[in-house]
Design a protein around this nucleic acid. Structure first.
Lengths: 184, 184
DNA sequence: ACCTGAACACCGTTCAAGT
DNA sequence: ACCTGAACACCGTTCAAGT
């Protein structure tokens, strides 16, 4: 829907920018725009032409990851009880986040990019589906929404690399426990 | 222990820097060092002489807040059961954080500034005391530590001003529930 | 011992000039 | 229609020169 309408050189530049952005972010953990343009071999203006904001670029860089996360939610719900599905989905988020910490920025973009329209975006929909299933089964507290979950997952961002292995999944367990309905 | 050993002009500059930093951070929500130096009426080098890193400056700016938070923990434990004490302490954190979002940076500094020595710092000690009391009473899960709590509290940082009132305390409730031991 | 402020490095963003 | 890259704004940090 987009590439075909671009001039050939523009389409190639766009692809090279995204590719360069992936290298830069996975090498340094951060996204420096001038570095991306340099590595892609294009002028800075070209980068801005294709991606007006850094969020636009991040969203494209992680589009596949976000799509996979979104697609995983209904599959997990079909195979597991709601709490297990939520736990497994959290594990996937942690898997993505360890290698590319920046994926959280993309997740947040994915959730909030059309905040103005009242929609919560595809990731928000996925989380809502997981929460709804848990609520219907009476195992998830009724007073949490997708935004709450995103905010809580955000704590993974602050983990040092050194403590990731010992803390990431543990933190998600604690969060999951907080989301569950306390019996009694 | 510090001001008396400084030359008079140095002591005054130091005080003016801290004062300027407080204004800047409460006005803009961020700490721009050149802006602090300008507002304090000192050269940038003077700022660096007194506070070699931005964390040193932040720690001084929020020293009183951090001390109050630390002092509150034993008081709350003396008056309430452990879970209530933890809940009240969380509420205080939220109170501080709403007005000055940057306080979290200071909290993190307060916790980790002597990470190398193995200590968790004063805030870490306060949290550990709260957790220990809860563990002893069998109401807090035994597998969480102060670092976990700091990371989870960090989710408040990402709240927009507009959603603070509706979400902040609610998020802390969810976190608190995650920290509690599930009966059965 | 302490201070100043010019200067440098770095990054994001824009825009006039080109094809 | 698209691209380039010089240029500007901004911020952090250093350091030679001063008192």
């Amino acid at each position: 829907m987009n590439a075909s309408r671009l001039r050939a050189d523009a389409a190639e530049n766009r692809a090279r920018i995204v590719e360069a952005a992936r290298s830069v972010v996975s090498a340094s953990g951060e996204l420096k725009l001038n570095a991306v343009a340099r590595r892609a071999g294009v002028g800075q203006g070209t980068l801005y032409r294709h991606f007006p904001t850094r969020e636009d670029l991040l969203a494209e860089v992680y589009r596949h990851d976000v799509e996979e996360l979104v697609a995983a939610a209904p599959l997990l719900l079909a195979e597991h009880d709601p709490v297990t599905a939520l736990a497994r989905w959290f594990d996937r988020v942690a898997d993505y986040a360890r290698v590319k910490r920046e994926v959280f920025a993309a997740v947040e973009v994915g959730v909030w990019q059309d905040l103005s329209t009242g929609s919560v975006g595809p990731i928000g929909d996925a989380i809502t589906a997981l929460l709804d299933a848990g609520r219907a089964a009476g195992v998830v507290r009724p007073d949490v929404d997708a935004r709450d979950v995103i905010l809580l997952l955000g704590c993974l961002t602050r983990l040092d690399d050194a403590e990731w292995d010992t803390r990431a999944r543990h933190l998600l367990h604690v969060v999951l426990d907080g989301l569950r309905l306390r019996e009694g």
